[in-house]
Amino acid sequence: MLSMNLAELKQRLDLLVEGNVISSSARSITVDAFQHLLETLGIKDVEQAEMLFTHLPTALTRMENRETLDAFASETMMEEVRNSGSYHLAKEQVRRIEREWKGGLPETEKEFLYLHYTNVIQTNQGGEAN
């Protein structure tokens, strides 16, 4: 699936909830985050959304279950992300997720979200993804 609309996202998330892969609260935050991205970019379908919007609910579910992520995005990769023209938009999207999630997100989780968001925003603004 190269692009995804809200109905398709909900269908995917419902399968993941039914299969006990993600929690219902992770589902609802993810739907909200997707809608917010659509509004921000003024689009109806998100190109290459699958990775970010699978990562996000599974990461939120992992945090809910108090499982930690040992991975770190490499500093070179993060330097690229911070220099990206869409970094400020990515940060804004992640801030909103944090507000909705209420528990706060660990820095490592946020870095992966910045990475995914900058790629998706660049792709959907017509720019080149990394």
Binding site: L16, V21, I22, M51, T54, H55, T58, T61, R62, A71
Partner: peptide
């Protein structure tokens, strides 16, 4: 997937 966060096998 990149992070082992579930993308590889979630579905």
């Amino acid at each position: 997937c990149h992070t082992g966060g579930g993308g590889a096998l979630a579905m």
